[in-house]
Nucleic acid binder design. Structure first.
Lengths: 339, 339
DNA sequence: CTGAAAGCGCTAACAA
DNA sequence: TTGTTAGCGCTTTCAG
């Protein structure tokens, strides 16, 4: 492994001072065109690539932003990442992507790694309502700008960008009620995660507004994945009486439910109506396309990126900014949609 | 924005030399337990987080690996990323994820950013057979270990991990021939991308082995996405005579074809058989589940990561290592599968 | 237009 | 067990 060449090697090669080389390489003023040309030629010949560790150390700036999401393999997050990347790359930032897998400890580790590498800012979809606060406070205490995206943590003094999870769920469930479904079950996600908790709240409030009673069997607790949906469906199938509508916390869960019900001969939407949340592409490809709530993941990304950029450029406001991206009902064949 | 504390602040706080603090923080030998305790307490109180820019500069090691993929939003790549991450995180490396969007210029930029940040190694799924060589040679010339994954670039002296694209395609097409399909069309991807070119080669060789003639209309040129599949299907629909089997370069394309054919009243597999490549989850959820070739994306990731780790730990071999991960035929309802 | 000195935050090597 | 010196590769002063 050969040694990489440095600014010093170029200086020696050109018989100039390190300083002149540094200036020429950065296109700074006050360098004789002839000199600059010699330097550039030498840099090329020596295969010089600047060492940004050194530059960043001096400048206290890395042009790097850290991203922490639960799991990049979940359909929603690549879209979000793309939104972030489009905006931030454009402005000269590079991205560190980390996954927390919804584990608080892992999240903490990843954030530490980012802080040690002195990223200019962090965009975080926190793993836990109850336990991520410490991690976020740690970022804040280092004076590192942070934007929470998709998920909130109450009581944290950070900028946030979320979708209207509560409103979306409320609207969805209200639609089901209007369609005269009598027994609407919510397959809910972990209540320690913001989006899941907001969607449950949307369900609850919509039911309450329609004077529907909510019994424990109306709520099935599960996770966020396809497999979690399969399990939830099995539990429902084991009951004496199936619901006539199921509102799932997200699309992967809904698709898991869909598949299990279908494999057990249940006809959607005739016997059971089914809905998800997020509008990932897969839902539309099902034999019976999935009614859902559209969330613009990429827009969440661009908004979060813009907010971070504003802070990076010195935006000072007393209060943290809380931005919401609207959701939209998407009615497809997995529910009855009269009128 | 308050100033972050450094090792120097702790030294002042404890009335010790910087060196002693450095040692204590790294759990090095030869520090009085009492002293270490004081230092640790002080570090905590001052909210000290080590500056790895400085450490990395001295140690010439960043514990960071750069990943460059075409597009993290494509189902295949999150799985690959996960494989990489599992292995590399475990061994203390953090990951820089970049997307090239199949653009050579963007790829070049991303690689430069990684090299400037002095990543310890790079894992790359190259954008172009004909144009990525320069970029890869640039990495190599810096003495930076690199592993090509999923896609190759001929004539490059780097370790590689690929799936058996040729064999998988050959097997698939041979199966279609055995099922007595007469007019088998290949919806091919860009021939400047390794996987697409290998799959076309698999198609061609299988046809040749069965003494089938290949005419220009047997091959439809398109891209890698769902939309590309839709376009290809429209072109086929416009023909006088539809094929009786379509082998698509990958699953997203196949699903795009599927949807367009279905929307035009074509029954799969009765009128047209359809197959993809990759076995992404979506293919199984279609009304008529998709016959395809399974590729273990995560395994590609773990293999590539292990290969890189070996190089990072000083593995020296004359020749680059070329590892292949097997593929497997997945027969589902979108093709006739007799016997 | 060019250069010398100092320092970013840390560690390796040697000395006390 | 602790401290001193030098230096990683670069940039910011301030001088020439």
């Amino acid at each position: 492994m050969k040694k990489r060449s440095s600014i010093k090697d170029i200086a020696r090669d050109c018989e100039l001072s390190v300083m002149t080389v540094s200036r020429a390489l950065r296109n700074a003023y006050g360098i004789h065109p002839k000199t600059r040309e010699r330097i550039l030629e030498s840099a090329k010949r020596l295969e010089y690539i600047p060492n940004r560790l050194a530059t960043n150390l001096v400048l206290r700036k890395t042009d790097t932003v850290g991203i922490v999401v639960p799991d990049i393999a979940r359909s929603f997050f690549p879209a979000l990442f793309r939104g972030l990347e489009m905006v931030l790359n454009e402005r000269g930032y590079h991205l560190f992507l980390c996954c927390s897998y919804d584990q608080v400890v892992k999240e903490q580790e990843q954030v530490m790694a980012l802080l040690e590498r002195r990223v200019d800012g962090i965009i975080l979809a926190p793993a836990s309502i109850s336990q991520s606060k410490g991690t976020i406070d740690c970022i804040l205490s280092q004076g590192c700008p942070v934007v929470l995206v998709d998920r909130l943590v109450p009581g944290v003094q950070a900028d946030t960008v979320t979708a209207t999870d509560f409103e979306g769920a409320y609207e969805m469930v209200t639609h089901l009620i209007k369609q005269k479904y009598q027994n609407i079950v919510h397959v809910a996600g972990s209540q320690d995660i913001w989006t899941a908790s907001e969607r449950l709240r949307g369900y609850t409030e919509a039911m309450r507004a329609a004077k529907r009673e909510i019994h424990p069997e109306h709520i099935v607790q599960t996770g966020f994945t396809f497999e979690d949906g399969e399990n939830a469906a099995k539990m429902l199938l084991a009951r004496k009486k199936m619901p006539d509508a199921i509102f799932c916390v997200n699309d992967p869960v809904a698709i898991g439910v869909y598949k299990t019900l279908r494999d057990n001969g249940i006809v959607i939407p005739d016997q059971v109506a089914l809905t998800g949340f997020s509008a990932i592409a897969e839902g539309e490809l099902l034999e019976v396309p999935l009614t859902t709530v559209r969330q613009d993941a990429q827009a969440l990304g661009t908004e979060a990126a813009n907010l971070l950029l504003a802070r990076l450029n010195g935006l000072k406001t007393e209060m943290p900014v809380a931005k919401q991206v609207p959701t939209e009902l998407v009615l497809r064949a997995s529910t009855r949609n009269n009128k």
